[in-house]
């Protein structure tokens, strides 16, 4: 059991940051929204449709409107940067080659990597790979983009670039964004709406300023990075015993 009684709204056209300690199942939440995983109970509505009740072909149609930036970038290793970004266009549109080329170069230009179009994913740095993945995620001009830990493992410059890109994307084309992260400062700086998860529950929800002003001990511990608090420093042995006995 990862979540219990979780209810949250993702406002359209805004950036929602979902934060929480590692292991709270933030990535699982994204996979549930994209229906890569199915919940034991409960419903998730994407654009008004219960995504888990759709047929396979309907689900694939909805996914065309969803872009996802994976934690690792997940670029296809046997294709060049250009081919990676062109792939969703070739699969889902009937555009001719010159139009696809124009769109791909435009998307690469927007992440500052037009010059890297001919490189292979293995020749890119981590930050560049994530930017290419971002260009690929927005190739079809999706309505919803989900970012899985976009800042993890990035140097300060790359982080700054990504923050700027996510912000621009939202301002420019009115995309709904979900940013899953545990980088407090970056997330609070770009989000319009913040949601903090811990222990399978939503412990705080609201505008970044409300979250910063929160009195909740768990929220404070998380935001300030205090080693001990409601989440104890010592991992309790009783949890392990409990898990073993359940098996």
């Amino acid at each position: 059991m990862i979540y219990e009684d979780v209810s949250l709204d993702i406002p359209r056209g805004k950036i929602t940051a979902v934060m929480g300690p590692s292991g709270t199942g933030k990535t699982t939440l994204l996979k549930l929204i994209a229906a890569q995983l199915y919940p034991d109970s409960g419903h998730i509505f994407v654009d008004g449709q219960d995504i888990h009740s759709l047929s396979r072909s309907d689900l694939y149609k909805v996914r065309e409107k969803i872009g996802m930036l994976f934690q690792s970038g997940a670029l296809f290793s046997d294709m060049s940067v250009f081919e990676n970004v062109a792939f969703p266009l070739q699969e889902h549109t009937k555009f001719d080659a010159s139009k696809i080329e124009r769109i791909v170069l435009e998307k690469l230009h927007s992440v500052g990597l037009r010059g890297a179009a001919k490189l292979l994913p293995s020749e890119l740095s981590g930050g560049m790979a994530r930017r290419v993945a971002l260009a690929r995620a927005i190739a079809l001009d999706p309505e919803l983009v989900m970012f899985d830990e976009p800042f993890t493992g990035q140097d300060p410059i790359s982080k700054g670039v990504l923050v700027e890109l996510i912000r621009q994307l939202n301002d420019g084309s009115g995309i709904t964004s979900i940013v899953v992260s545990h980088d407090v400062e970056e997330s609070l700086s770009i989000a319009d709406h913040v949601c903090i998860l811990s222990g399978g529950h939503v412990i705080a929800q609201g505008a970044p300023s409300d979250i910063r002003a929160s009195d909740d001990a768990q929220v404070k511990q998380f935001l300030n990075g205090e080693p001990d608090g409601p989440v104890p420093f010592h991992y309790p042995e009783s949890v392990v015993d409990e898990q073993r006995s359940q098996r």
Binding site: Q36, K61, E64, S72, A74, L75, F76, F87, E91
Partner: peptide, 18 residues
């Protein structure tokens, strides 16, 4: 296996490609 580990398979799924 490596495609699975680097989320490339999930990535195809997310793009609506089987």
């Amino acid at each position: 296996g490596l495609m699975k580990a680097t989320e490339q398979l999930s990535s195809y799924e997310m793009m609506g490609v089987d």
